[in-house]
Design a protein around this nucleic acid. Structure first.
Lengths: 182, 182
DNA sequence: AGAATACTAGACAGACCGGTATAGTGTGTC
DNA sequence: GACACACTATACCGGTCTGTCTAGTATTCT
């Protein structure tokens, strides 16, 4: 059965998601991950080549979930309503207890630029930009897309560093002022 | 003589500024700092209580320089022109080779919340908000101030993570659209 | 039943971490 | 000339890091 087969892997990914996001990647040691997962050390190295691969896998799971969110949002036909819904979700996330900013930009300052995790981060931003471009009906290099990316990153980093969810609302206001103008 | 007196301290702060900003704080060990500074290990612990204090001192130097920049900008009487000049400087910095985003927000994800360095980070954001509030002629809790902070953080983090200085320009566009509107 | 396989438990290695201690050197001041 | 002092150089400590290895257990497929 595949259920039991990779239960250790699933437990590790759960623990990694919690600890890497909450405490940071470098600050979270292997031993703490396996302790939180309730799993033996060998199970980690049987399922992943090393810590780098675990980090990459953790971000890949996040990316997959993000993709599903985008797919849901794509069902909203009106472009402005879709972008509004995107930032509404951000506001809801920021208000939740465990909010700590964008997991990808947080990871970006911790991982090596040539690690497998870094490629997941790049891929995240590619898809984010692509979503905005598709919604605005413009090229991915368009200034409007860049403005939306700035608003996203600004919202996430501001709200997490200053521990003030209302900054996501400020970013949303900015988006309305900007997208209205085009 | 005071010149020779604190030459080791100055060399350490120079090395810390370069390495902490370029490679990250946790990734940069004490040994690498003293090697880059060309200084003995004991000199570090004679001048600073420990790594935490060195990190705080590094950020304090940055904060001091930032204060001088703000003081210069305050000479510009027109509020909108002053904010324009602020983002013009950001664009110039982002275009320079060693750009790696906001040193304070980068440090924020690496340092302990109750470390001396963290207080410097908080102080930076307090002064940034105060500068914006003063320029707009509003309270520091005003929505306009929050929007400007979002633009600043968005510009810095986007440009550094995506290695694309043009995102600072996008943030500047956003600012123009926003401050015009008020 | 028996082979394959994922798992647990934990000792261990080697590197590196922040920080301390020791011993000695150069320089300026009184 | 003697003292104070900031400095250099280096050995060392305890702890923690990632990763390896050994040995034994449970489960599942055939």
């Amino acid at each position: 059965m595949t259920v039991t087969r990779s239960s250790a892997r699933a437990k590790l990914l759960d623990a990694a998601a919690t600890l890497f996001y909450r405490d940071g990647i470098t600050a979270t040691g292997i031993d703490r991950v396996i302790a939180h997962a309730g799993v033996a050390k060998a199970s980690l190295y049987n399922n992943f080549a090393g810590k780098d691969e675990l980090v990459a896998a953790y971000l890949s799971v996040r990316l997959e979930r993000f993709d599903q969110t985008l797919a849901t949002l794509m069902e909203i036909a009106d472009p402005l309503a879709r972008i509004d819904a995107f930032f509404d979700r951000l506001e809801a996330n920021a208000a939740s207890g465990q909010f700590g900013g964008c997991p990808f930009s947080r990871a970006a300052v911790e991982v090596n630029p040539d690690s497998p995790a870094h490629r997941v981060i790049v891929e995240f931003y590619r898809r984010l930009g692509s979503f905005f471009a598709q919604t605005l009906g413009v090229d991915i290099e368009d200034a409007g897309v860049k403005q939306l990316i700035v608003c996203y990153n600004g919202a996430m980093s501001s709200a997490s560093v200053l521990k003030d969810p209302s900054l996501v609302g400020a970013a949303h206001d900015l988006v309305r002022a900007s997208t209205m103008r085009r």
